[in-house]
């Protein structure tokens, strides 16, 4: 049971972080379908840091440096979305899809190259981080507290405050709802959209590194992040683009994802004798059902997905 709570919380943290990232991007008016790829690159940045850092480092600096690595990589990568979709008015769906594929391919190529350089016989795309991972965990009476749970809560509060209490948030949302109105009062729509996309990189990168640290202590980059970027988008839609509701939605989805990791710990679930694949597909099935019921009355930012063109008014 404790294990279920633990996994639920950690997966919910991932989903919430990434969904909040999507939330920033969409509130600025850019649909970020490339979150999956951004997660992979963020995970790569963090994993490379863990690989590079000596084990002798204390927990706090390790955590901060790993986080920084993930964020820097992911933000740089999300800039690819910004350039194409904001400055060149590219189709946001194509570019997002390309980023997802590119993320996995680039990470695999890079990690394999690093592994092969270190050991000519090693052609795997895996990075191990057994020791580094321990620094993220605190064992409280059998419950493995992961620092990411706290980080996720902090980032949630930050997202809420930034969106609803600051000048920046007000302007950002104006750009996603009615960019012409924002422009007419002197707000630079391109700048705000860039900000939205880069912030989604920050959140997406954190979510990425959190995801690969959630269960295992090595990661095979060929596998990407198993559609988590898209699950996060479903969480965002279910959460109606509002941080607090996103947090609740993430908990629900996190629970179903956690079940696939720990269902064998529950005798009554094992007794049902359902194949593991069913638990694996649970989160996707649930999100499909949830979307079917919530998409009709969506409160998506009105101008999202439409490239802003100063000339057209």
């Amino acid at each position: 049971m404790l294990l279920l709570v633990q996994y639920t919380l950690i997966f919910a943290s991932v989903l919430m972080l990434v969904a909040l990232g999507g939330c920033f991007s969409e509130h600025s008016g850019v649909i970020n379908l490339g979150l999956e790829g951004i997660m992979v690159i963020g995970a790569l940045g963090g994993a490379l840091m863990m690989r590079a850092l000596p084990n002798s480092w204390a927990a706090l600096p390790t955590i901060l440096v790993v986080l920084l690595g993930a964020v820097v990589f992911a933000v740089a990568y999300s800039a690819l979305l910004g350039v194409a979709c904001i400055n060149f008015k590219a189709d946001q769906t194509i570019v997002g899809t390309a980023l997802n594929m590119l993320g996995v391919a680039a990470a695999t190529v890079l990690v394999k190259a690093i592994n092969t350089a270190a050991d000519p016989n090693n052609v795997s795309s895996e990075i191990q981080y057994v020791e580094a991972k321990k620094k993220f965990l605190v064992n409280i009476a059998g419950f493995e507290f992961n620092w990411f749970m706290l980080i996720a809560i902090i980032m949630l509060v930050v997202a809420y405050v930034v969106l609803y209490k600051t000048r920046f948030g007000l302007r950002l949302m104006a750009c996603g709802e009615h960019p012409q109105a924002a422009d007419s009062v002197g707000i630079n729509v391109y700048k705000m959209r860039w900000a939205g996309v880069l912030i989604s990189g920050v959140y997406g990168g954190m979510g990425g590194i959190c995801y690969i640290l959630a269960g295992v202590s090595l990661w095979k980059f060929e596998n990407g992040v198993a559609g988590f970027g898209f699950l996060a988008l479903a969480v965002m839609i279910f959460g109606q683009w509002k941080p607090t509701r996103i947090a609740l939605a993430a908990l629900l989805f996190g629970l179903f994802r956690a079940l696939s990791n720990v269902y064998f710990g529950f005798p009554f679930l094992v007794a049902l004798n359902i194949p593991g694949s069913v638990y694996n597909m649970m989160p996707y099935l649930i999100s499909l059902v949830v979307l079917a019921f919530t998409s009709k009355k969506s409160r998506a930012p009105k101008a999202e997905g439409i490239p802003y063109d100063k000339g057209q008014r």
């Binding site: 570019v95 390309a98 996995v104 391919a105 190529v109």
Partner: peptide, 19 residues
């Protein structure tokens, strides 16, 4: 290098198709 460099190239091509 790994054989995935062709995946890399084809995903770069899709990205460029956005332009």
């Amino acid at each position: 290098y790994s054989s995935q460099i062709s995946d890399l190239i084809s995903s770069l091509i899709i990205y460029l198709c956005g332009f």
